[in-house]
C-alpha cells in the first residue's frame, strides 16, 4: 500500500472505512422521524382546531398555531430538552417549524457570551438566515413568474 499512488491508496482506504464504519440504523431512524414528526404535526393540528374553535379564520389560526409551536420549541431548546428529542426524532424534529425555531435559539444561546448584538443577534440567523433567503428568493421568483404569465 505504501508505494502505491495516493489516489489508489485513498480508494483502498475508503473501502476499509466503509466496511468498518457502522451503518446508520436506518429503520430505527425512519421510525423515529415518522413518529416524532407526526406527533409534532398532531400537536400543531390540536392548536389549529383550538384556535379555529376560538373564532379565528383558518389562516389566522394557522399563524397562531405556528407561533405557538415556535414558542414551545424555543422554550424546550432553552430547557435543554429539544436536543434530547432530536436524538430519537432526527429529521422528525428538524423539519417541522419547531426545528426551525430550535436552529435559531441553539446557536444564539451558546454565543450569548459574545454579546447581544454579535452573539445573540447575529447567531439567531445562522440557519434561519439561509432558510429565509432561499424561501424569500423562491417566493419572489414565483411572484415574478405569476405576474408576467398569469
Amino acid at each position: 500500500m505504501e508505494t502505491q499512488p495516493l489516489e489508489i491508496q485513498k480508494k483502498q482506504y475508503a473501502k476499509i472505512v466503509k466496511e468498518i464504519r457502522p451503518k446508520p440504523p436506518l429503520l430505527r431512524n425512519l421510525a423515529g422521524a415518522f413518529v416524532v414528526g407526526g406527533l409534532i404535526a398532531v400537536i400543531g393540528q390540536i392548536f389549529l382546531n383550538l384556535y379555529q374553535g376560538l373564532g379565528l379564520s383558518l389562516q389566522e389560526a394557522g399563524a397562531a398555531e405556528s407561533a405557538t409551536l415556535v414558542f414551545l420549541a424555543a422554550l424546550l431548546t432553552g430547557l435543554g430538552v429539544y436536543d434530547e428529542i432530536a436524538k430519537v426524532g432526527g429529521a422528525g424534529s428538524i423539519v417541522p417549524i419547531t426545528g426551525f425555531a430550535n436552529s435559531m435559539v441553539s446557536p444564539a444561546m451558546e454565543y450569548r457570551g459574545e454579546g447581544l448584538v454579535l452573539g445573540v443577534g447575529a447567531r439567531l440567523f445562522t440557519v434561519a438566515g439561509p432558510v429565509l433567503v432561499f424561501g424569500i428568493v423562491t417566493g419572489w421568483a414565483i411572484g415574478i413568474f405569476y405576474y408576467f404569465f398569469r
Binding site: R21, P22, P24, I85, A86, A91, G99, S103, P107, M109
Partner: peptide
Amino acid sequence: PTEQGVQRPLH
C-alpha cells in the same frame, strides 16, 4: 451548537 437538534451518527 450542543443544543441544536442534530442526530449524531454512530461513528
